[in-house]
Design a protein around this nucleic acid. Sequence first.
DNA 1: TTCTGAGTGCTTTTT
DNA 2: GCACTCAGAA
Length: 807
Amino acid sequence: MTASQNHDDSDFDASPSLGIAARAMAAARPGAAGGYLQGMNPEQREAVETLDGPVLVLAGAGTGKTRVLTTRIAHILATRRAFPSQILAVTFTNKAAREMKERVGQLVGGVVEGMPWLGTFHSIGVRMLRKHAELVGLKSNFTILDTDDQIRLIKQLIQADGIDEKRWPARQFASALDGWKNKGLRPADIPEGEARAYVNGRGRELYAAYQARLKVLNAVDFGDLLLEAVTLLRENPDVLADYHKRFRFILVDEYQDTNVVQYLWLRLLAQGSHNICCVGDDDQSIYGWRGAEVDNILRYERDFPGAKVIRLERNYRSTAHILGAASHLIAHNEARLGKTLFTDLPQADDEDKVFVASAWDSEEEARSIGDEIERYQRGGTPLNDIAILVRASFQMREFEDRFVTSGIPYRVIGGPRFYERAEIRDALAYFRIVMQPADDLAFERIVNTPRRGIGDTSVRTLHDYGRAEGVPLTEATHQLVATEEFKGKTRTALRDFLDSLGRWRDLVPAMKHTELAELILDESGYTAMWQNDRSADAPGRLENLKELIRSMDEFESMEGFLEHISLVMDRDAGEQLDAVSIMTLHSAKGLEFDTVFLPGWEEGLFPHQRALDEGGRAGLEEERRLAYVGLTRAKRHCLIWFTSNRRIHGSWQSSIPSRFLDELPAGHVEIKETGSAYGGYGSSFGRQNPYGASRFDSVERFQSNYDTPGWQRAQKAQKAAGSTGRGGFSSPAQPSYGRGQPKLIEGELIAKSVVEGAPKFAAGDRVFHVKFGPGSVAAVDGNKVTVDFDKAGQKRVVDSFLERAGN
DNA sequence: TTCTGAGTGCTTTTT
DNA sequence: GCACTCAGAA
């Protein structure tokens, strides 16, 4: 995405460039050797060639999804069904958009400058809104607020309303607001009950006030980029008709992640040509918590009547063991369309099964994974091919600590994004206020950064005046500085500040934008502020500011830069050095690694307790999909760990192996003989376990656990659907998705770990626990025992952790 | 304005 | 158990 592509209206005329299509014809003949269809399997080919009408491509992990999408575009161009500018192709992330652009370019030969409508939902939303801003009450140079600005704005409104901020935190309202916008609800549309549940029953009013304030500021938030776009199309049939004429083909990536507004937007646009092709995988839907509707993909055939559904199940990534494990696990989900990955590749003799290993606690887990990584490294695996995928980011720390001491290079993927850092946001606020004097949020952010002696009181005075007069803060300052309102130092400081802003503004047309940016940061004293800061991260922040200026160089002007910064600024691709990647399961979606470590498979952490408590069965199924995503990232080796003890919120908890372990098929899994889960620290790799055998000590015992409810359910599902004959597991042919499913999560919890038989303990028994010491049994529930420990207080533990102790 | 102590909450994240 | 936020005092 480049800065030059906004604001130009040329793409709306009827003379699209022929360049790409012509080159596509020349370079890519479908059938010929080297043609773009070469080497595609029949399903992929069908997905590429079925151009007319709605199509849903259910593309399992590693089945060549991106290839299908890009080849489809090439095919549309080569068959002259549309010009590049008549194809709408949407993705979720900039990264995906960039990749698609590159790959279409490769297929078609040349850079795809002619595809103006390939981009993220948000960037395309912006594009539409800029063009028709006045129709939704904006000016076309509107600002895009990020979450931080959003929260500050809400805070102000809550304060102005005299509502207790403590009781109704702005952050909480911001997420409600996001939720409503994701669902396509405007203030009038939100259900009464929900409206009342916020800010003292004033949820609806606050939402409306917030929107009104945005219009005054000539700003939109991320949610608006889509919601306002939908409003625009709904309320202006002529505009919609124009887009109908324009978009001959619509392509959507990661359809399982779309939310309601995105769905509504797509539906409106697809009314034109009906040629909408959505690619996705219901089994990889892991963003329900941020508004994604799995229903969108599950109901596709009903939403788009006559839709053709094409399944891509031939996997080119992983070994048969990994696919077998993943397929069997995901077959436990009920809300799915059902597909089973398989591989054509011959099985190698030395192919590893999926490993499961245990550790005493997270420290040992990190240590043994580190050892394992070094072993792979000695065996010739580059560290770049190895990843550790965790459920929650707090797990990363243990690995970082360990790798620092043992000298394993690593990189953490994720974390705060570049433009979210305070110094970057401050710098941007300076640039914004220079370019847009009415940007009050930018004004407030930097008016006293660095300190100029303009405190809260002064800012409030400006605010009150500005609001009373209906003028932005800059203007309010101008007017009040001319009066006796401010005295002495404050007045001088404000006047100096205004002078600086004016001076910088005058320089905009005269100076190269990167130089001006540097000048602003220097003259404002902002750079000096960090230079004088003696804290450890100050040098890093200065470095970030330099990086910011460097990245501005890619844009033609300050406006172009600001336009795209909040939407497009990715964190940089990272250094080239050989290092292990550490990231969350969520950020691993779409990636692949030769060797994948999956630590922390314990009840409560994975599946996460909150997902179960708040999401019930649907929550559990989403967790299971996460596990599926994790497993299918691995090409050749997949190693799972669980610990017997973990520190959660500061206190130690003994933990139970994840139910997902029980849901792996024994035939594809191997239990690693570390035996140290219950054996204490250090050199306890011996087989003698002072605390007795546990069910994870041997493969046999492990296998005997497959007589569990989860397993039985999966088997029943298999029987119902009949075998596919590919050695894989098949799932119900009919999606049996229901909203009113009973939430049995609690009851199912430990069931699978129970070795049938009489309870080992009774209330009153004296017992001993490795971690918590001696105690007395208070209650017994299956194999879960509640114990009053003499030292550690009352805990609920699994009986296999307990030893009978004499009185 | 800056420091300090109390209070809180604590999955996942893109745009 | 820790990291972050915010109100109130120095």
